[in-house]
């Protein structure tokens, strides 16, 4: 299962790779990274949406996570990738907008990796 992680903080990559090192080693998970909404769309275009789950930060300069979300949900119909939104603010407004745009889940920073692992397990078992 491939996950695309979108965040403008580059260290997110090291963090995820270490947090999921066992899953990566056992070939249960494959991680891809994009540092902006634009990069994420480019990745999805090139790789023909082979990411099943997209984890995206909302608060990014340029194309925001919400723009990315609406873009993905409009463009890729079947099967649409699952999109989980991450934000530092965790406020109602972003939550509601994200839900309206079709976000499949909503995570707040700081990320609870155990909870995230649970969620991923549920997705891959569906």
């Amino acid at each position: 299962m491939r996950i695309l992680i979108v965040d403008d903080e580059k260290d997110i990559q090291t963090l995820f790779e270490q947090r999921f090192r066992k899953e990566i080693k056992n070939n249960e998970l494959e991680l891809a990274f994009a540092y902006s909404g634009e990069e994420a769309l480019k990745y999805l275009d090139e790789k023909e949406q082979n990411a099943i789950l997209i984890l995206s930060d909302i608060n990014m300069p340029g194309m925001s996570g919400l723009d990315l979300l609406s873009n993905i949900k409009q463009k890729y119909h079947r099967p649409p990738p699952l999109v989980m939104m991450i934000t530092a603010y965790g406020d109602e407004e972003n939550y509601n907008t994200a839900m309206k745009l079709g976000a499949d889940d909503f995570l707040t920073k700081p990320l609870d990796f155990n909870q995230l692992k649970e969620k991923i397990k549920n997705i891959s078992h569906d």
């Binding site: 903080e9 947090r19 530092a88």
Partner: peptide, 21 residues
């Protein structure tokens, strides 16, 4: 607040993962 939260998250997360490692 946002700019402090981000580095703090990294500090916490990298500490936790290092502990496990």
């Amino acid at each position: 607040a946002h700019e402090i939260q981000n580095p703090l998250n990294f500090v916490n997360n990298f500490s936790e993962v290092s502990y496990e490692m």
